[in-house]
Simulated assay, not measured.
Amino acid sequence: METTPNLQVYDLGHLGLVASILDQIGLVQTVDQFVGPRPGEKVSTGMALKAAILNALGFVTSPLYLFGHFFQGKPTELLLGPGITPELLNDDRMGRMPDSLYAAG
């Protein structure tokens, strides 16, 4: 008897293309270079900005505390990077991202 591989299917839509373009222009690295690392953060400011752009282009209008729900059922590690899960994209992290950008100038 043959075993079938464990396949997982995700809905990427246009987000894969947008994430790829953001990677090619080096958005995350550029932002992180200006902002710098924050102690204890699991999601960098650049990565949080990339997630916010993907969310905005997902044509979703929801409160910040539901931000992580947008990425449920989407391959966040493929779109954003290894180790990034929807739970890490919480309202606390996403709320601090604009503050970090403002402080960096």
Rank of each mutant, 00 (worst) to 15 (best):
V9Q: 05
L79W: 04
E2S: 06
V9P: 00
L15D: 08
L7F: 13
A51E: 08
Q33H: 13
E77N: 11
T61L: 12
L79F: 04
L79T: 04
Y65K: 12
D11Q: 10
L54P: 08
H69A: 13
A51L: 12
T4D: 13
S100Q: 14
T4E: 14
K50E: 07
E87M: 15
V43W: 04
H14W: 05
V28C: 02
G46H: 01
T45F: 10
S20P: 00
N6V: 11
V35M: 02
L79A: 06
K50V: 04
D91C: 09
G26S: 13
A103K: 11
T4I: 15
T76N: 00
L66N: 10
L64S: 04
L79S: 05
D32A: 02
F34D: 14
P37V: 01
P5I: 09
M1N: 05
A48K: 06
D99P: 00
L89F: 06
D32H: 01
I21R: 08
R93G: 02
P98F: 13
P39I: 09
D23S: 12
T4V: 15
V9R: 05
F67R: 07
P75S: 12
D23N: 15
T61E: 15
T4M: 14
S100M: 11
V43Q: 03
N6S: 08
A104Q: 13
G16R: 14
R96P: 02
D92K: 14
D92M: 14
R96V: 06
F34Y: 14
A104L: 12
L49S: 03
G73M: 10
A56P: 00
L54V: 08
I53Q: 05
I84V: 15
L15N: 07
G83Y: 06
F34C: 14
K50R: 12
R96G: 09
Q33G: 12
Q24A: 15
K74C: 07
A103F: 07
G81K: 05
M97V: 08
M97A: 15
V31K: 00
P86R: 01
N6D: 12
Q24E: 15
